[in-house]
Amino acid sequence: MKFKLRRNLFSFRNRVVVIVVGVSLGAVSLLYTNNMARKLREKEQHDVVLWAHAMERINRDVLGGSTPFQDPLVSDIMSTGNNIPFIITDQDLKVLHSHLIPDEIINHPGRLRKQIDRFTEENTPIPVKVLWSAEHYHIIFYGRSALLKSLYYFPYIQILVITAFVALGYVAFRSSKHDEQNRVWIGLAKETAHQLGTPTSSLLGWIEYLRSQDVDQTAVDEMQKDLAHLMKIVDRFSKIGSETPLTPANINEVVGESVMYFRKRIPRNVTLDYNGLAIAPVQANINAALFEWVVENLMKNALDALQGHGAIDVRISSDEQHVMVDVKDTGKGIPKGNWKLIFEPGFTTKTRGWGLGLSLSRRIIEEYHQGKIAVIDSEPGKGTTFRITLKRIFA
């Protein structure tokens, strides 16, 4: 047991280490990418400033009002190998030159204006003096290169990847932990069934012996019923974790058997009502042994909630598609915040018990029977109603 505990702790630490390492690598990568994007943006801004200076210098030697980007050297510097999109306009926003801007934008005033506004948001436009006219100037509007945009978007992609990595790690951790818990409970259930096999067989022999003695046979009959019920419990525990075949069954009769058994074993100040024998039969595919266990567990919880006095009402209802079994009590009730928590393994409000009854009930109904079990109504001090919902079948 100590070895297994240490191995589990080691496995847990390994998962934590993997997640921490993944997050750390992601954080380092994000910082590195952001730094690269910042440096590239500074370089591109510096390049555009150099273009502006080059244009102003050439202006000193240009006569007749020709534009400096018509100079072969400037044109080569600004276009060859350059992936920075830009638009050069005069002071009236008339396009004088552009690079990496589609013609359908340049030739459409509305789209051109939107493109200029977009460039202005990305980078501050740079004015270029026109030396032959103090009233005229050119403006360079420029955006981000494709590489710079990729670097800007890349951190968001990394965040998504890291988030997915952490989520998958968490799911894998929860799944492995859940599977390990399932193996423990399945093993415990089968071992319990195995251990109970010997005393139940012995009790069968003692009951047969008592039948041959001069004792009250009514008491022996009740003992026989309790033993039969105990053998059902052993059978249920042995089925946990195994393939569970479902067969068509009369829900009224199956629930009725559990109610009749409980009715003789509840305190005098508790009443147990059942409508199933007074309505038309309804059918569903169930494993009778496991389904009975769920119904009995709900009635046992209701009995515990009553604390010796009150009422339990078991009712069957149906529609065209479903069969509903309600177990209602007038007990202490459940706060609404605990309606879902009570089905979690280990959750209990009792001073004794492991808090597994409702957890196993949910598993039997939802995983084995493809149905639902839930609290549909409860109020502290007034009682609780549990509902089992199964798919109805027709004979």
Rank of each mutant, 00 (worst) to 15 (best):
L93Y: 13
K94T: 10
V95S: 08
S98E: 05
S98K: 07
H99V: 01
L100R: 02
L100N: 00
P102E: 00
P102Q: 00
D103Y: 10
E104M: 14
I106H: 14
N107F: 14
H108G: 07
P109A: 06
R111P: 04
R111V: 12
L112S: 10
L112R: 09
L112P: 11
L112F: 08
R113C: 10
R113V: 11
K114L: 08
K114T: 15
K114Q: 13
K114V: 08
Q115Y: 10
Q115C: 13
I116K: 08
D117V: 13
D117Y: 12
R118M: 06
F119G: 01
T124G: 15
T124P: 15
T124C: 11
P125C: 09
P125N: 05
P125W: 04
V128D: 01
V128K: 04
K129C: 02
K129E: 03
V130Q: 06
V130S: 05
L131P: 02
L131R: 13
W132M: 03
A134Y: 14
E135C: 02
I139W: 11
I139C: 09
I140P: 03
Y142I: 07
Y142K: 13
Y142L: 05
Y142F: 14
G143W: 00
R144G: 07
R144D: 12
S145Y: 05
S145D: 01
A146S: 15
A146N: 07
L147C: 04
L148N: 08
L148P: 14
S150Y: 08
Y152E: 12
Y153A: 15
Y153N: 15
F154S: 07
F154P: 02
F154N: 12
P155N: 12
I157L: 13
I157Q: 09
I159T: 10
L160Y: 10
V161F: 12
V161E: 04
V161A: 14
V161T: 06
I162G: 03
I162C: 07
T163K: 12
T163P: 04
T163G: 11
A164C: 05
A164W: 05
F165I: 03
V166N: 04
L168P: 04
L168S: 08
Y170A: 11
V171N: 06
V171A: 13
A172N: 11
A172P: 05
F173K: 15
F173E: 03
R174Q: 09
R174H: 08
R174I: 13
R174T: 12
S176D: 15
K177V: 10
H178Q: 09
H178L: 06
D179C: 04
E180V: 07
E180S: 12
E180C: 06
E180Q: 11
E180W: 12
Q181V: 03
Q181S: 12
N182M: 12
N182L: 04
V184G: 02
V184S: 05
V184H: 09
W185H: 07
I186P: 06
L188I: 09
L188H: 10
A189W: 00
K190Q: 07
K190A: 00
K190D: 00
K190V: 00
K190S: 03
E191L: 05
E191G: 01
T192A: 08
A193W: 01
A193S: 01
H194D: 03
Q195D: 02
Q195S: 00
G197P: 00
